[in-house]
Nucleic acid binder design. Structure first.
Lengths: 138, 138
DNA sequence: AAATTATACCACCAAACCAGTAGGTAAGTC
DNA sequence: GACTTACCTACTGGTTTGGTGGTATAATTT
């Protein structure tokens, strides 16, 4: 049931960028150090985010990454689906799943389907803005 | 995010026992064949369930397994926690987790905690009885 | 142009986990 | 004693996880 480090680290990096969004482009070296994460490892995750226009990357001296949208437009659900692949609880519900022979008579399928929806709705209802605001209140 | 086969198979075996609960003790050989599961594999899962008094096992000819409680007392949550270990989305929330240094300032911890509770509540709100009754209606 | 800084790409690796197998033992029935 | 069934221990092959190392490439400064 675990969310892997890929998704969690992506979230932490984005939150770090959000907390320092006045600083222009921020090199991953700085974020990695600040968050105590492996530089190499998050470097491997970032392209996924920049390709999907969540962040802008700029090369060279003075470069780094920067958020490309207002905080309220970053849904945790999108970030997790992007980095985790998908949030399906059973293989039958994965995007590329082949139809299950037992689907019609499966007593558990409706439970998994509803659960899947609940998970997506939950994470889609939370934005980076929410996370930063509720930091202390919750 | 996947629920592993351990939890899903356990659920399927219990549902099979439920659907045939008039037949006395049912050998795993029969269930495995009926459900299309590996006999050896489910044999390895069952002791967990019998040790925790979800089922009664009887050796020898005419033996097998039998549910030990009314269907309404089998919460899916209990079954999954037993077979999966736990349903925590992040290692920080696992039962045996060592306290995280960043816990106090972690902007995502409340989100995971609430999610964890939501997951447990969801599966605790569903019993084997529910699953069998809603089979067609949902 | 050289040096620096940083993204992007690729191959590799150790450990853990997953799904399942193999073989044997304990307990019960006929 | 033969047979059946639960139960236990150990192993295995494959995949995933969480990385590391090296290099190419692109942008910027001096």
């Amino acid at each position: 049931m675990l969310i892997s480090t890929r998704g969690r680290y992506a979230l932490r990096v984005l939150l770090d960028l959000a907390e320092h969004k006045g600083d222009g482009y921020i090199p991953m070296k700085v974020v990695a150090e600040r968050q105590g994460l492996s530089l190499k490892y998050i470097q491997a995750i970032m392209p996924t985010l920049s390709k999907n226009n969540l962040i802008e990357g700029v090369h060279g001296k003075g470069g780094g990454y920067r958020l490309s949208k207002p905080l309220s437009e970053y849904r945790v659900g999108d970030i997790l689906r992007l980095t985790e692949g998908n949030l399906a609880p059973v293989t039958c519900l994965e995007c590329d799943a082949k139809p299950c022979v037992r689907a019609d008579s499966c007593p558990t399928l409706p439970m998994w389907t509803e659960f899947h929806k609940m998970v997506n709705d939950y994470f889609d209802g939370i934005t980076l803005e929410n996370l930063l605001n509720n930091k202390k209140s919750q």
